[in-house]
């Protein structure tokens, strides 16, 4: 199992627009990826409802994980995405 830690950098947290941006990127990888709070249970990272439902705030740490051995590059990209302020580009 591959795991990567990331800190949410979107200024208003991982809410609607940043969340849909992120989940679309996950879906685009086509890989099974989960997102969890450190020590918490993972949910499918491609689900905007699950991800929004976590109500992740700015500055919170999360763990991305995948059973796929090919997910290394994808996880790195997703970490970079979470650590960008997705609210800032409007």
């Amino acid at each position: 199992m591959l795991q990567r830690r990331a800190t949410i950098r979107s200024s208003s947290g991982l809410h609607a627009r940043p969340a849909s941006h992120f989940t679309q990127a996950v879906a685009a990888t086509g890989l099974p990826i989960t997102i969890a709070r450190a020590g918490g249970e993972g949910v499918p990272a491609s689900s905007v409802l699950m991800v929004m439902g976590m109500a992740l705030d700015h500055g919170e740490e999360v763990v991305l994980a995948s059973e796929s051995t090919e997910a290394e590059a994808a996880l790195e990209e997703l970490v970079a995405l979470l650590e960008t302020d997705l609210d800032a580009d409007s």
Binding site: R17, S20, T23, S46, S47, V48, L49, M50
Partner: peptide
């Protein structure tokens, strides 16, 4: 546009 896009993403969510 933002609200419609967010609603579209919800409808497309495989979890739903």
């Amino acid at each position: 546009a933002e609200v419609l896009m967010a609603t579209s993403a919800i409808a497309a969510d495989p979890a739903l």
